[in-house]
Amino acid sequence: MPIPEDVTGEEIDGGVRQELLSLPKTLAEDVAKNLVMVARLIDEDPEGAYGYSRVALRLASRVAAVREAAGFAAYANQKYGEALAEFRAARRMTGNVDLWPVMADCERGLGRPEKALDMAGAPEVQKLDKAGQVEMRLVVAGARRDMGQLDAAIVTLQSSELASSSVQPWSARLRYAYADALLEAGRKDEAREWFGKAVEADRDGSTDASDRLAELDGVEFVDALDEDEDEGEGGGPVRGSGSGGSEG
């Protein structure tokens, strides 16, 4: 797959660069460039990221960072079985537990929420850092919702991290998941409050909390161009909608 001229491979994380030192120099550079493309595209063009991850995997399947990148690219494309296999391979190579929550979420994606709950009770969870433990809590809440246990999902999300007024990297997603669960339970006023708190914490636009909040408030969004076209065709304004959350 073509690599843009502005990609040098030097953009990768220092830890990944260290892992690539085990490869011949030219090969390491090629792998690095493909990993840069995975990181660059994974949010906006997951299919493209997946393609580059497969190239990197073909070149250096024995490098843990490559297996991890391939796992995330597969995960972004909802190829959960493939993602889980890659994450397991990366974990075997490093012994690192950081991937435990996303591995559990892959089990959810494969329709095995019970397995995700089993993983939540494993010793590996105690070794996770705070961010990892919050991710695990989100996965558990999602698994509970998958199983129709909505009240249990809501209780799972009620934690010191949720109650904290300080904004952390996980705050927006945690508040969003809680709001979404409350809304599904019919607790609209509480849901609105928590979508609002998610908006306050969402500094990088990682959720569509603002859209969900506007929807609850009955706000309608009209694109100026669409409005002009509709007026010409005799149509009315089109109501905007959010893309929906992925936490539950």
Rank of each mutant, 00 (worst) to 15 (best):
residue 224 A to T: 13
residue 236 G to S: 13
residue 242 G to V: 08
residue 218 G to D: 04
residue 237 P to Q: 01
residue 211 D to I: 12
residue 233 E to L: 11
residue 211 D to N: 15
residue 244 G to Q: 05
residue 237 P to T: 10
residue 228 D to G: 10
residue 217 D to Q: 13
residue 242 G to D: 03
residue 243 S to H: 10
residue 241 S to V: 13
residue 227 E to L: 14
residue 223 D to C: 14
residue 229 E to F: 04
residue 245 G to H: 04
residue 228 D to H: 03
residue 243 S to P: 00
residue 241 S to E: 06
residue 235 G to I: 01
residue 241 S to A: 13
residue 213 L to T: 11
residue 242 G to I: 08
residue 217 D to Y: 03
residue 225 L to C: 01
residue 225 L to G: 01
residue 221 F to L: 13
residue 222 V to Y: 00
residue 220 E to P: 00
residue 240 G to T: 07
residue 236 G to N: 11
residue 228 D to Q: 10
residue 245 G to C: 08
residue 215 E to S: 14
residue 212 R to Y: 03
residue 239 R to G: 14
residue 235 G to D: 11
residue 244 G to F: 10
residue 224 A to L: 15
residue 239 R to I: 14
residue 225 L to H: 04
residue 235 G to F: 10
residue 227 E to D: 15
residue 224 A to P: 15
residue 226 D to M: 09
residue 232 G to W: 01
residue 214 A to V: 00
residue 221 F to N: 01
residue 224 A to R: 14
residue 237 P to W: 00
residue 227 E to R: 15
residue 235 G to P: 00
residue 221 F to D: 01
residue 243 S to N: 07
residue 221 F to G: 03
residue 219 V to N: 03
residue 243 S to V: 14
residue 216 L to E: 09
residue 215 E to N: 10
residue 221 F to E: 05
residue 226 D to F: 06
residue 237 P to L: 02
residue 211 D to W: 15
residue 221 F to Q: 08
residue 220 E to H: 06
residue 219 V to E: 10
residue 243 S to I: 14
residue 230 D to I: 05
residue 229 E to Q: 05
residue 216 L to A: 12
residue 226 D to R: 08
residue 231 E to T: 00
residue 241 S to W: 05
residue 242 G to N: 05
residue 235 G to L: 15
residue 227 E to G: 00
residue 220 E to C: 14
